[in-house]
Structure formats: structure tokens, C-alpha cells
Write a protein that binds this DNA or RNA. Structure first.
Lengths: 231, 231
DNA sequence: ATATAAGGTGTATTTCTTACACTATTGCTA
DNA sequence: TAGCAATAGTGTAAGAAATACACCTTATAT
């Protein structure tokens, strides 16, 4: 191969769609922008990728700078490249998504970058108007997790470590936006044999407390080489 | 929103993974490169995206210039951005894939661009050494179509308009790289009710000729709002 | 003590999946 | 032209999974 080829640059951004689940609702983590374009608007955590970092690294760095979140595993979703999506020219963006335990993480109220004023969870069903094509990116993400949740146990990533079967069911209902049958749901979930029943009950509720369960990752890895079928 | 923002550029490429099916084998369309880097190597059809075209448009244009193929519907697969994937610097590439009826299309033996010497089908199980990270891109594509073929009838895109059930079965066997039971396969396929039996038989074979079938897209669209489950 | 609110449980029916082997048809060739 | 070679085409029984459906239990609050 010939050397001394011209060195080319590339300028593009990476955006993060971070899902959480709380009080029976799916939430998305948004930031309030402190810079043009779309100054003062809400949008996804996202920024330019540097020349010397992979996209995977960039998206982690950006999430950390914007929200304080660290060590989150994100998956690539899609690359958006409409000509009009960015006012400064055709800037493509590579979008990533992740699902996490909302109550197990701390959002930094004061981001480490001046480009962002603050980060905040917003219910998926009641989003503000968003910068760029971020609304569209979120919609694509939710379609993705709907497909993904059918054959892989990602839903557990959204729940606290110890959860009740009702919480688990509510999560599936929120993702699919439809009601499920309680008995059939439990039968199916328990049959997969990836839940570990704990000797512990819910606390602080004013009705009969439910048993708590844990997702048993070891059992899961043993039993399923490839894919489950939660649907 | 403030105007007079600086105008930014972006330099990146788009690559095409085009699958065909023929003689019981999956094939990929490769081009022989006529330019540095990787001059004389085989690789995927792919090139730089212009500033005034969407990625979707670019990938269509590039495929046409490299192979003569027109009007092919491609879906985005993934964006690859390793630091070392391109010798001219960190050039990311947005990969697309498509499946098509190999015998229904004509590959242009003389590409309309000087960057490419010729285009040719190669069996997936016997690929030459490839430029850049194109091997990796092809592997990701085959994983994608394996997942996709389980819940959507894309396999029909690879077959000639009229096909036998054995051909259909061989295609699924090639995609999943495993043998299927003939009786169960036929039962399941016919039950979905998206095949139309024709009054016609295979010709030119030296054994009992098989019935020909067509994929009935109208039936499909009527019956299934969302997804099938071919698995 | 009673009301409230959610937890927790089983069965019958239907549908889907799987495993499995022989006869039928056509063209070729000795 | 007999028969061989090669693939087409077909059914059933058993087990697994999906679905539809309603009532009693338990903890807390008043």
C-alpha cells in the first residue's frame, strides 16, 4: 500500500439516548443547552467526536461531561445524516442508547462543560420540544428497545437490583405500551429460570408487601447461549 | 436561534454490503479497487459522501457508480469508526446492506468510476482478503440478516420471482448455516399463508420437477401489520 | 373491625414445535 | 424399455408453549 496519502479529517457528533424507569414510567435523560445552536432548548447529551478517539469512547466522554454518568454501556443505534438536521451544515450524528437503573445513578446537577446548563430526567410520554432531530432519534430508540426486549433480558437493566414481579410487568407494559395478563406474565418469567426469589419483601407500602426478586445473571449465562424470547 | 454560525464540514464514507443467493450459496458483491489505499485489493463498494447529499442518497449513487446497480433499497447497518480502520486518518464509514435477486440484476462489468476496476459476486464462504475493515463489516451484516430473517420475510428478496420450496429452504439453511427438516419447514411456511402456489413447474431438471411458488406481498401486507416469525 | 389496595395462585383449551420415513415422479442410461 | 438416480411431496403423534380467565390472601390505615 502506498504511504504519504493526504490526511483527511472528519467532523461529526455523537448523541446519547439514556432510558430510565421510575414510578411506572419510562424516562429519558435530557440536557438543557447553553450554546448555539438551540441555546436554551432541551436536547440529548451529545457533542463533536474528537479526531483521536473512537465513536464508542467519544460517546462515553460526552455523557460523562454532560451528566456525570460514568461506566455506562451504550450501544450504537443509528447514524442520522439529513441535510437539514443541523444549522451549521450537514453534520451527521451517530446515536447511541443505554438503559439504566435510574435510582442507582447520580446525575451531576452541574455539568463539567459550559455547553450544558443541566441534565434532567423527562417522562417519555411528556417530552419538551427538542433541539435538532432529537425527537426523531428518541423515537427510533424506543422502537429499537421494543424489538430488543423481545429476545434479550435488557429490561433488567432498567430495574433496581431487587424488584417485584409487578414492577417487572409494569416495565414491559411501559415498553410495549400495552397491558399484560398477570398470571401468564409471572408463569412465563418464572419458567425462564433467570429470576432468583429473595427472602425479602417490599417495604414502605400500605398494602400487602410483594416478594423481591433479583435477576440471576449466572443462571442466565449458563442456560442461554444466545437469545431468550420474552414477548 | 442565532444565525451566522460557522459552517462545518464532514468527511466520511458509505459502504454497501450486497447479498445475493445462487446455486445454494450466499454471495456478496465485491469490487476490485483501482486506487490507493488498498489499490488492487477486493473490497466493498464504497466511497466518500458528498456535502450536499444524504447518506441514503450517497450510498445509492456509490453503488450505481461502482456496479451499475440502480433502484436497490438498502438499509443502514452500522457506523464503523475505529481509529486505525483507514490509513488516511480516522475516517468513519456508514455501512448499508441489501439483499437482491442475483439473477434479476446486471452487474456493470465496466464501472463508471476510475476508482474501481470491476465488480463481481463472491461466495460468502470463500472471500478474498479484503481492504480496510470490510471483512468485519460483512460479518456484522450476516449477523444482522440472521436476526432480521427471523421476523420479517426478507428472504424472498433473495430468490427469483418464482421459486421452489426447496430453494426457499436452502436459502434459510444458508443464512442460518444449519439443516432444517423438510416437512416441518414446508408446513410452517405454508401456514403463514404468504406463498402463492403457481400452475407451473420447474424446468430443465433431470428429476421430478418441483412446483413453483411466488411470494404474495398483498396477502402479507393484509395479514401482518408488523412482524412474522420465521424461525 | 373493617375497608382498601395490591399480592398471589391453577386449569383447561388451543396453538405451535418437533421428530420421524416412505411413496411418487421425472429424466437418463445401459 | 427397465431400472436407476435424484429430488418432490406428504401426515401423525407427542410434547411444549400460549392464552383466557376469577378468586382468595395479606398488610396497612382508619
Amino acid at each position: 500500500m502506498q504511504s504519504n496519502l493526504p490526511h483527511l479529517q472528519s467532523i461529526f457528533t455523537a448523541d446519547c439516548v439514556i432510558f430510565g424507569f421510575n414510578e411506572g414510567e419510562l424516562k429519558v435523560l435530557l440536557i438543557e443547552r447553553n450554546e448555539y445552536p438551540f441555546k436554551d432548548w432541551w436536547g440529548l447529551p451529545g457533542f463533536f467526536v474528537e479526531h483521536n478517539e473512537t465513536i464508542d469512547d467519544a460517546v462515553k466522554r460526552i455523557l460523562l461531561e454532560h451528566t456525570g454518568l460514568k461506566g455506562i454501556y451504550m450501544e450504537q443505534l443509528y447514524t442520522f445524516g439529513d441535510l437539514k438536521r443541523h444549522p451549521q451544515g450537514r453534520i451527521i450524528t451517530v446515536a447511541y442508547y443505554a438503559m439504566l437503573r435510574l435510582e442507582a445513578v447520580n446525575i451531576n446537577p452541574k455539568p463539567s462543560t459550559n455547553y450544558v446548563r443541566k441534565a434532567q430526567w423527562h417522562p417519555l410520554n411528556n417530552l419538551p420540544e427538542l433541539a435538532f432531530d432529537h425527537r426523531n432519534i428518541i423515537e427510533k430508540s424506543i422502537e429499537k428497545i421494543r424489538r430488543k426486549v423481545s429476545h434479550s433480558p435488557i429490561a433488567f437493566e432498567l430495574l433496581p437490583e431487587k424488584f417485584t414481579l409487578t414492577q417487572l410487568q409494569q416495565l414491559y407494559e411501559a415498553i410495549w405500551d400495552k397491558k399484560l395478563d398477570k398470571r401468564n406474565f409471572r408463569k412465563k418469567m418464572l419458567k425462564y429460570n433467570v429470576l432468583k426469589e429473595l427472602d425479602e419483601k417490599q417495604k414502605g407500602v400500605s398494602y400487602r408487601a410483594a416478594k423481591l426478586y433479583k435477576f440471576d445473571k449466572r443462571k442466565y449465562n449458563k442456560i442461554f447461549k444466545n437469545e431468550l424470547n420474552f414477548s
